[in-house]
């Protein structure tokens, strides 16, 4: 990925978010829940993103909220990725009814609408914390990647060197670990990034409808308060714009990384469509001839 500018920019941006997740709460100029007399103030040099109806500093809320967003995204991403590898690779490698069964299971989870499912589970839980939310999202969103991995594994299984290893009587574990998995890294990575994006948006959406870590802050809770306190009707645009932009930036960074991986996996996306100003066009090969006379 040396030449992949998109992926590089995405990774740098993700790095920034990761750092903010760690140091954000310390950097925040104010305690995010702390009230003050500056009620519903537009952005100023003291309150960069303005204040809420209780005089809370929105910049601090967004900054401190990064940790919860990154935490939920990462944990849910890891849980879902591990599950998807287990289910997908097994389903692809096992022939017969076991494989079919696992594949049907992932299809069922895929078709059941994810967000409503997450909502009914999280709102039935005795308590919601960042961890439980992350687990619920992770446990319900592995199906897409499992499906992709199964298809990949199926095609790998038919490759010559895998057939040969099987004919040599190598153990299934060795074949899966050393012959199959190394060929799936890119797909697994892209699945992980995709799930993190989904988990982040889900967490924020949950918080927006009122399911969130009690007492904690994330970008969705900022939006929840903005919505429930009629920020729009009061013209307090600063209340919801920063959190939304933060989501969009994080989402774009994740998408960029995924583009990079896609281009790595699918060479047809990589062939540049114009080289040094020459437009590469299917059906009419460019002719570059320096006329001599």
């Amino acid at each position: 990925m040396r030449h992949n500018r998109k992926a590089f920019i995405g990774l740098v941006a993700l790095g920034v978010f990761a750092v903010l997740a760690v140091v954000g709460p310390w950097l925040a100029p104010f305690e995010p829940s702390m009230r003050s007399n500056a009620l519903l103030q537009p952005p100023s040099s003291e309150h960069w993103f303005g204040t809420t109806h209780l005089g809370q500093d929105i910049f601090s809320q967004v900054l401190a909220g990064t940790r919860s967003v990154v935490f939920v995204g990462a944990v849910a991403g890891i849980v879902a990725t591990v599950l998807s590898v287990l289910v997908g690779v097994t389903a692809g490698y096992l022939s017969g009814s076991a494989g079919e069964g696992l594949s049907a299971l992932s299809n069922v989870f895929l078709v059941i609408p994810a967000l409503p499912l997450i909502v009914i589970i999280t709102s039935s839980l005795p308590e919601t914390s960042n961890l439980t939310i992350a687990l619920v999202i992770g446990l319900t969103s592995w199906a897409w990647n499992a499906r992709v991995l199964r298809a990949q594994t199926l095609s790998l299984r038919r490759r010559d060197y895998v057939e040969a290893a099987r004919a040599n009587g190598e153990s299934t574990w060795r074949i899966v670990l050393f012959e199959i998995l190394p060929n799936l890294y890119a797909v697994i990575a892209s699945g992980f990034v995709g799930t993190v994006l989904f988990a982040v948006i889900s967490e924020i959406t949950l918080a927006f409808i009122g399911v969130s870590d009690a007492g904690g802050w994330n970008w969705g809770t900022v939006l929840y308060w903005a919505q429930s306190q009629q920020a729009l009707a009061q013209g307090a645009w600063w209340w919801f714009v920063p959190a939304g932009l933060a989501i969009a930036l994080l989402g774009t960074a994740l998408s960029l990384v995924n583009f990079g991986i896609d281009e790595y996996v699918n060479p047809r996306l990589r062939t540049r469509s114009s080289l040094r100003g020459v437009h590469m066009r299917v059906g009419f090969t460019p002719v570059l001839i320096k006329e001599s006379s």
Binding site: R272, V278, M280, G283, F284, T285, P286, V287, L288, I289
Partner: peptide
């Protein structure tokens, strides 16, 4: 025939096709 898919490029030469009426065209131009 200029049908090579990207990243194919024709970088030199000519391909003269002689039509039935005796005239000829260069496919590359």
């Amino acid at each position: 025939t200029r049908l090579l898919p990207p990243p194919g490029v024709v970088t030199g030469g000519e391909v003269l096709y002689h039509l039935e009426d005796g005239s000829s065209v260069d496919l590359l131009r």
